[in-house]
């Protein structure tokens, strides 16, 4: 089947447009996505305050809370979104249209990134101001590069997860649910990941968020490098590798799972 670039770009814009419009049509979203998420992050800050932890730990939590906005988005609005699409009958429409599945996912990612970024910016700004976080940026270009690479890697991982929904239903949905708190733990969202020990931190580095958060802490806080897992430069290189890996693997995984889903007749199976 011929798939041209222009049609795919249209598909990306169209899928992204739905999310942005949906956000604007639902004013309640501003409340649930901005004010409320800061609260649980603040709770972790107060745990450190209760323990008389060094001040930079407050910053570590705020940064973790900020980045968790993207992780939650990748899990629920990217990976699990194919589940909802399948359940309401949109998935087969995507299959019929002469577009790549990755364009749909890219559209979801870019549209959803608007929502996730709003949430993340709010947590970051309000959290930093309320708790007076002391940042000491070592290299802004590197920090920006780490942020972008982390997001690309995460969305690649989200695409990989979404391929599971070509075949599975609630099993995959529950699997995604399982990735929330355990990944918050393993990736060191609220503490430096090296505290989990080298072997665990190395294993957790398969999730781009682990290396991304660690590198960001090293580049944004005075004592960040001391509590870092490995050097930020190595983490940047590893993140590039993970981005390529996840994007390539997700492309093949989507194709493979789609074929398998069609063969086993599970692509359009609802409420399974």
């Amino acid at each position: 089947m011929k798939i041209d670039l222009k049609t795919n770009i249209k598909a990306i814009i169209a899928r992204s447009y739905v999310r942005i419009v949906a956000a604007n049509r639902e004013p309640s979203w501003w409340f649930t996505e901005t004010l409320l998420p800061i609260l649980s992050t603040a709770a972790y800050v107060y745990v450190y305050k209760a323990l008389n932890a060094p001040e930079e730990y407050t910053g570590f939590v705020i940064l973790g809370g900020t980045m968790s906005a993207y992780w939650i988005h990748v899990l629920w609005s990217m990976a699990a979104q194919f589940y909802w699409e399948k359940e309401i009958g949109n998935l087969e429409l995507y299959m019929i249209a002469p577009i790549s599945r990755m364009s749909i996912l890219l559209g979801m990612a870019s549209g959803g990134m608007f929502l996730a970024t709003t949430r993340a910016v709010f947590i970051f700004l309000v959290g930093s101001l309320i708790f007076k976080v002391d940042f000491a940026i070592i290299s802004l270009p590197k920090l920006f590069a780490v942020f972008v690479l982390t997001l690309v890697g995460l969305y690649g991982l989200g695409m990989l997860f979404s391929s599971l929904f070509m075949l599975y239903g609630r099993e995959a949905w529950h699997g995604v649910t399982l990735l929330q708190e355990p990944v918050h733990l393993m990736s060191g969202f609220f503490f430096p990941v090296r505290n989990l020990g080298f072997a665990v931190a190395l294993g957790a580095s398969l999730i781009p968020m682990t290396l991304g958060l660690d590198a960001m802490r090293q580049l944004a806080f005075k004592t960040g490098a001391k509590s870092g897992f490995i050097s930020a430069d190595v983490e940047i290189a590893a993140l590039v590798g993970l981005c390529v890996l996840f994007l390539v693997v997700s492309k093949y995984a989507l194709e493979y799972m789609e074929k398998l889903g069609k063969k086993e007749g599970r692509l359009t199976l609802r409420w399974q």
Binding site: A22, E26, S28, W29, F31, T32, E33, L35, L36, P37, L39, S40, T41, A43, W76, W84
Partner: peptide, 13 residues
């Protein structure tokens, strides 16, 4: 809308 799972999560927060 559907996204109000964030409401529950936020209230729990």
């Amino acid at each position: 809308a559907h996204h109000s799972y964030a409401l529950t999560e936020g209230m729990a927060g």
